[in-house]
Structure formats: structure tokens, C-alpha cells
Design a protein around this nucleic acid. Structure first.
Length: 201
DNA sequence: ACCGGGATGTTCT
DNA sequence: GAACATCCCGGTG
């Protein structure tokens, strides 16, 4: 598991380094293959742009914890909180390459997840597949129980792609999305950037 | 394959 | 009352 200091950096520094980690929850786990960095007062695309609110409290909390939020009336999305406590800095987990617990993931995702690539190829799919929700907001990823992060040991990806972030109306020009180029779990049809787009299929 | 729209409810203005 | 860090389905080509 990464040192606490690993997370106590700006999210834009941590984000690409997360591409070698595995998110684990119970029997279910997957390699992180797509992330987006969010900052604070300097990032109009961030939930923390206008300061701390009850919803975003975890974003301002200690690094290495989860920030889990509810959106569009039905979806949960999970972030890894970064930076020193008191600052707003987090990395959204956008996609995993499933490694274990695939039967549990299929049961959680339902019949719509026909192929393995349908399990974790998006931020809300990832939360649903791993069973993450509001009860995990603020939990310590470096703690013993519950969801945690472990080193994957895959080595640095051969090619790390980079682009602008997905689904925003503010801060759309910041190239703060990173992904493992060529991985089929990376969400599709996404904005291109200085270093190319995600996979075409 | 691609595109447009609906679902659904919390949060903040 | 509007926006929302999304996903899924049904239409068309």
C-alpha cells in the first residue's frame, strides 16, 4: 500500500501515479486505468471550487481517504482525496480493469453488463461494480478494513494517454485526465487532448 | 456505429 | 428552479 505521503501531493501530481494501483473492496478488485484530477479554488470544474460544503467535506479532509458523491439522481462516483488536510484536491476514479471478484461485480451491475468491459468502464459503473456508495464517503483507504488501495506492480504503463476532462461545463480546457492507452476498459468516445484519445471501441 | 433524450433526486442558487 | 465529474435505451443509417 502506498505511503500516506504518496497522497499528500497535489491531485494533478498523484493522478498519473494512480495508474499503477489496484482498488480493492472485499473480494472485488481492479487496476486503475483512467483518472481525472480536481483541484480547489483555482478549478471551476471542481465541486470544491466555491469552498467547503457538507457534501464536499471529505474533499477537504486528510489525504488517502475517499470522497464519494451522488449525482444525476442515481449514480455514485468515488475520488481519492489528495494534498494536505485542509486543501481541496482529489482524483476521480473513472475506470478499472477488473482483476478479481468478477462474479460479484456482474451481480452488482446487473444484466446490462454483458461483457467484462461493461463492468468498470466509467466512474459510476466502477462504484456500482465494487459496491461503493455514500456509506464510504470519508473512509480511510489506508485503513485496515473496507476499500483500500494496493500497489499493482504492473510497472509504469507503456503509454499513458492524457486529455481534457469528461462531462464538465466548467474548467473544460484543463488536460487533467490520464488513462492507460489501449486498455479496453477506458471509457469511450471521450475528448481528445495533447496526447491522443481513448480507444475507438 | 452514431446520436438524442430520459431517468431520477440531491445540492446549491 | 437549475444544474449535475452519468448511464442506458431506442431510433436511424
Amino acid at each position: 500500500m502506498p505511503d500516506r505521503a504518496f497522497f499528500a501531493r497535489d491531485s494533478r501530481m498523484v493522478a498519473p501515479d494512480l495508474l499503477d494501483l489496484v482498488l480493492v473492496h472485499g473480494e472485488r478488485s481492479g487496476r486503475i486505468v483512467e483518472v481525472e484530477a480536481y483541484a480547489g479554488p483555482d478549478d471551476p470544474g471542481s465541486h470544491g471550487f466555491r469552498g467547503e460544503t457538507p457534501r464536499t467535506a471529505a474533499m477537504f479532509g486528510p489525504p488517502g481517504h475517499l470522497y464519494v458523491y451522488f449525482t444525476y439522481g442515481m449514480h455514485w462516483c468515488a475520488n481519492v482525496v489528495c494534498g494536505p488536510e485542509g486543501t481541496c484536491s482529489a482524483v476521480l476514479i473513472r475506470a478499472l480493469a477488473p482483476l478479481s471478484g468478477l462474479e460479484e461485480m456482474r451481480a452488482a451491475r446487473g444484466p446490462v453488463a454483458r461483457r467484462d468491459v461493461d463492468l468498470c468502464s466509467g466512474p459510476a459503473k466502477t462504484c456500482q461494480a465494487l459496491g461503493l456508495d455514500g456509506s464510504h464517503d470519508g473512509v480511510d483507504l489506508c485503513g485496515g478494513a473496507g476499500p483500500r488501495l494496493v500497489v499493482g506492480g504492473f510497472g509504469r504503463p507503456a503509454r499513458i494517454g492524457r486529455s481534457t476532462r469528461v462531462g464538465l461545463t466548467q474548467g473544460v480546457d484543463h488536460p487533467w485526465r490520464w488513462f492507460v492507452a489501449g486498455d479496453p476498459n477506458v471509457s469511450k468516445g471521450r475528448p481528445s487532448g495533447p496526447d491522443g484519445d481513448g480507444p475507438s471501441r
